Simulated scan of single mutants.
Amino acid sequence: MGISDHNLSGKQKRNIAHFASVVRLAKADGFLSEGEEVLLKRLAKRFHILEEKYKEILNNPEDYPIYTPHSYEERIEHLYDLAKMVFADNEATGDEAKVLKKICVGLGFPIDNVEKVADEAIHLVLNDNDLDEFTNAIKKVNKI
């Protein structure tokens, strides 16, 4: 994280941290596919991440902490973005699933339920569920 990052708003810092988590997941298999790059560009635009910061995060995503949203709804939305990244290249590797589970813990999902939550998230994205369907299904699986 550069010195200029200290002047960012709280929301922008959260967006950058979330984006870095998505990048870590995208790079879990060692490379970025065309589909992953397209999704990353779309998320960067949605999070108002400038090109220079985009490249910095892409090169060193581990330099940014995992941000745990306070709201349960936000955590599920972040999980949705991450699960979509797993399949951005139309395949899921064991490494990507492993990283997704670690990030689920970082997002605040209970450790004893992370496997169920991550598996359900992957299943829902595979079946092209929208965010509302995804949210309802994750709430059923997580039962907090």
Rank of each mutant, 00 (worst) to 15 (best):
G2P: 00
D5L: 02
H6F: 12
H6V: 09
K11G: 04
K11T: 05
K13I: 02
R14C: 03
N15H: 02
I16P: 02
A17R: 04
F19A: 02
A20H: 04
A20Q: 06
A20P: 01
S21F: 06
V22D: 01
R24E: 04
L25C: 08
A26G: 14
K27C: 03
F31L: 14
F31Y: 15
L32M: 07
L32R: 05
S33G: 14
S33P: 05
S33F: 07
E34P: 08
G35R: 12
G35A: 12
E37N: 13
L40E: 03
K45C: 08
R46K: 12
R46N: 07
R46L: 01
F47Q: 01
H48N: 04
H48Y: 09
H48S: 11
L50E: 06
K53M: 06
Y54M: 04
E56R: 05
N59G: 00
N59E: 00
N60L: 08
N60V: 11
P61D: 02
E62D: 08
Y64C: 02
Y64L: 01
Y64W: 03
Y64M: 01
P65E: 04
P65M: 05
I66W: 04
I66V: 06
Y67P: 03
Y67S: 13
Y67Q: 10
Y67N: 12
T68R: 13
T68Y: 10
P69S: 06
H70Q: 11
H70F: 10
H70P: 00
Y72A: 10
Y72G: 06
E73W: 00
E73K: 08
E73N: 06
E74N: 08
E74L: 10
R75I: 02
H78L: 10
D81M: 09
D81N: 11
K84T: 11
V86C: 15
F87N: 11
A88T: 08
A88Y: 10
D89I: 14
N90H: 15
N90R: 15
E91H: 12
A92S: 15
G94A: 15
D95P: 01
E96P: 05
E96H: 12
E96N: 14
A97F: 12
A97M: 14
K101H: 09
K101L: 12
I103P: 00
C104L: 09
V105Y: 15
G106F: 10
L107D: 02
L107C: 06
G108Q: 10
F109P: 01
P110I: 11
D112T: 14
N113E: 14
N113I: 13
N113P: 07
N113K: 15
K116E: 13
A118T: 11
A118W: 05
D119C: 14
E120W: 10
I122V: 11
I122C: 12
L124E: 00
V125L: 08
N127F: 15
D128L: 13
L131G: 03
L131N: 08
D132F: 03
F134H: 06
F134Q: 02
T135Q: 03
N136Y: 07
I138Y: 11
I138R: 07
I138P: 04
K139R: 08
K140G: 09
K140A: 14
V141E: 10
K143V: 12
